[in-house]
C-alpha cells in the first residue's frame, strides 16, 4: 500500500555475468527485478566482436525454484560491433525444478549465430517473495508453535542503524510483512512473514534495540535450507 510496494522490490545493480573474452565477443550483464508480481531478468548485451551478432536465444537449466524464461529472448535487429542492447526478459516460476547447490544458483545458456555460451549466476531470494505473503495472525502463532525449534536459525544483521518503523517499511516494499509488533524490555520484536513463489512460508522474529545497530533475526521454516538465503535477502534489502 506504500510507495515501496508501487516501486517494487530492491534491484541490485547489473553485474557482468559473461565476460566478452569467454564468449567470442558477447558480453552479458544483468540483474533480476520483481515488480507487482512479475519477475524479470534485465539483461544488457554488448557486441565486442568484429562481426554482427544475430539469432539470439536463451535457455535455463532446471533450478531450485522453477525459474524459466516466459518469452523468447527478443533482439530485434542484428547487434553490430560495439553496440549494446537492453532487454527485459519476463520469467515464470513454474518451470522444471531441480535442487541446485547453492539453492539460488541459476545456470543459463545463450546462443547466437557464432556459438552457444554458458554461465551461472546467483539470485537474491527476495525476487521470489510474493505479494500475498502476509500470514493471518492466528495462523502465524499456530505455525510458529508447530515448527520445531531445530528448524529455527538465528542471524545477526550488523551495521543497520534503522528503527523498527523504518525496518518494517523497507522490508514491506520487498514483500516481507510485519504481522505483529511488541516491545519487551526496550526491545522491539517484529513478527514477520513471507511466502516464496513455490508456496513455502518463512516466519521471522526481528529484534530491534534502540541505539543498537545490530539486529537479531530468527527464522522458522519447514524447509530450513532456505533460511540462510532469506537472511541474505534481509541483509540486501535493509542495507540498500
Amino acid at each position: 500500500s506504500g510507495v515501496g510496494s508501487l516501486s517494487g522490490s530492491y534491484v541490485a545493480p547489473k553485474a557482468v555475468w559473461l565476460p566478452a573474452m569467454k564468449a567470442k565477443g558477447l558480453e552479458i550483464s544483468g540483474t533480476f527485478t520483481r515488480q507487482v508480481g512479475s519477475i524479470t531478468m534485465d539483461l544488457q548485451l554488448t557486441n565486442k566482436a568484429l562481426q554482427a551478432m544475430t539469432d539470439f536465444a536463451i535457455q535455463f537449466n532446471r533450478n531450485s525454484f522453477g525459474l524459466a524464461p516466459a518469452a523468447p529472448l527478443q533482439v530485434h535487429a542484428p547487434l553490430s560491433p560495439n553496440q549494446t542492447v537492453e532487454i527485459s526478459l519476463p520469467l515464470s516460476s513454474v518451470g522444471s525444478v531441480m535442487k541446485m547447490e547453492p539453492l539460488n544458483n541459476l545456470q543459463v545458456a545463450v546462443k547466437n549465430n557464432i556459438d552457444v555460451f554458458y554461465f551461472s549466476t546467483l539470485y537474491s531470494l527476495h525476487i521470489l517473495f510474493v505479494e500475498d505473503g502476509k500470514m493471518d495472525r492466528q495462523m502465524f502463532l499456530a505455525t510458529w508453535k508447530d515448527i520445531p525449534n531445530e528448524n529455527e536459525a538465528q542471524f545477526q544483521i550488523r551495521d543497520c542503524p534503522l528503527n523498527s518503523e523504518a525496518v518494517s517499511t523497507k522490508l514491506q516494499s520487498s514483500n516481507i510483512f510485519t504481522v505483529a509488533r511488541r516491545t519487551v524490555e526496550g526491545q522491539d520484536m517484529l513478527y514477520q512473514s513471507l511466502k516464496l513463489t513455490n508456496g513455502i512460508w518463512v516466519l521471522a522474529e526481528l529484534r530491534v534495540q534502540p541505539g543498537n545497530p545490530s539486529l537479531t533475526l530468527s527464522l522458522k521454516c519447514r524447509a530450513p535450507e532456505v533460511s540462510q538465503h532469506v537472511h541474505q535477502a534481509y541483509e540486501t534489502i535493509l542495507k540498500n
Binding site: L141, V184, E185, M189
Partner: peptide, 20 residues
C-alpha cells in the same frame, strides 16, 4: 473489534522469547 485473544498471545510469545 472482537478481542480474539491474539494480541495477548503475541505479547506472551514476545515475553517468552525475551525471558525463556
Amino acid at each position: 473489534e472482537l478481542d480474539d485473544g491474539l494480541d495477548e498471545a503475541f505479547s506472551r510469545l514476545a515475553q517468552s522469547r525475551t525471558n525463556p
